[in-house]
Nucleic acid binder design. Structure first.
Length: 302
DNA sequence: AAACTCTTCAACCGCTCAGAA
DNA sequence: CTTCTGAGCGGTTGAAGAGTT
């Protein structure tokens, strides 16, 4: 069932393999409320039977709010090809130039699509990136990549020399400019730049940043539903009932959500995961406007 | 329809690095 | 300086789905 090599002994008893929607919700809910903090201790605190490394990977590669899902655009592919020619297999570095894309995703796209395209530029090369395909070279530079493959029964053997890629320094300057801009202004699919009051810390972490640019109401809806799904509402409230008026208000508002969830609408969590899952932003589109919702959480930031 | 092969990509592993003690 | 710990990176694996015979 498990992937990869055998688990090391300390991980015996922990879940492995694909994450379930329930595990995803628990992780998202926890991080939305408390931040990830120490990854190693997170699983215990969040009640997950996973190692911290697995949680971190799941969050970064799949559950993070600003993840962009779906096929890569021509521009993205060209960017990867160009940057790979310059940087080699520095996937995280390449990913830093492609907002919303993860190093793992880029690595997969390279290994499954782009590399083949460059090695076999003649087959199906009417597509976009053929412009960047290097001309076959007979040199045997140590930076070159040699590959054999079959094409219609005929063995194709071409050597790709990294130096032959069409790269110029101006493009890299543009990439750097993109890096400066994207983290705030151009976050994909983000609709507002609302800053949540509790985020006053001047040194905001990356996760904090994601939360800052998220709409407060959307966060609340997402979080409230997760809380409801994870049965967190009751235990949360037992510790925050000092103000009965506030408690009643929250209970009323939660009931609004539950009523909506249990109405004729599709299960938003189910549809969220069936869709891809893409991102919590898409998930949130399923909700009506519930501006008055107040979460029981301590806030959404670290 | 069944069996087989190929492709994709989420998740795993070991390793390295940086910072703290 | 050394040791320890946690985070992050890149390579690899294999389950699942798609395609082919």
């Amino acid at each position: 069932m498990g992937r990869g090599r055998a688990p090391c002994c300390e991980k015996v008893g922990l879940n492995k393999g694909s994450w379930t929607p329930a595990e995803d919700m628990r992780l998202v809910s926890y991080i939305q409320k408390f931040g990830h903090g120490n990854w190693r201790s997170l699983p215990k605190r969040a009640g997950l039977l996973r190692c911290g490394k697995s949680c971190r990977l799941r969050w970064i590669n799949y559950l993070r709010p600003d993840i962009k899902r779906g096929n890569f655009t021509k521009e993205e592919e060209d960017t990867i090809i160009n940057l790979h020619a310059l940087l080699g297999n520095k996937w995280s570095k390449i990913a830093s130039y492609l907002p919303g894309r993860t190093d793992n995703e880029i690595k997969n796209v390279w290994n499954t699509h782009l590399k083949k395209r460059l090695i076999m530029p003649t087959s199906s090369s009417s597509n976009s990136s053929s412009d960047h395909s290097p001309s076959p070279s007979s040199s045997s530079s140590d930076q070159s990549e040699a590959k054999s493959s079959t094409n219609n029964g005929q063995e194709v053997h071409q050597e790709v020399k990294v130096d032959d890629y069409d790269i110029n320094i101006e493009e890299l300057i543009i990439f750097d400019e993109m890096l400066d801009i994207f983290p705030i202004e151009n976050k994909t699919t983000m609709t507002t730049t609302t800053t949540i009051a509790s985020s006053s810390s001047s040194s905001c972490s990356l996760n904090c940043e994601y939360n800052q640019i998220e709409s407060e109401n959307e966060s609340k809806k997402w979080l409230a539903y997760l809380e409801k799904e994870l049965d967190l509402w009751e235990c949360e409230d037992t510790t925050t009932t000092t103000n009965n008026n506030n408690y009643n208000k929250q209970e009323y508002e939660k009931k609004e959500i539950v009523d909506y969830m249990e109405s004729e609408h599709d299960d938003p969590v189910l549809s969220y995961f069936q869709r891809g899952p893409s991102s919590p932003q898409n998930f949130l589109l399923d909700f009506p406007s519930l501006d008055s919702i107040t979460s029981t959480s301590n806030g959404f930031l670290l």
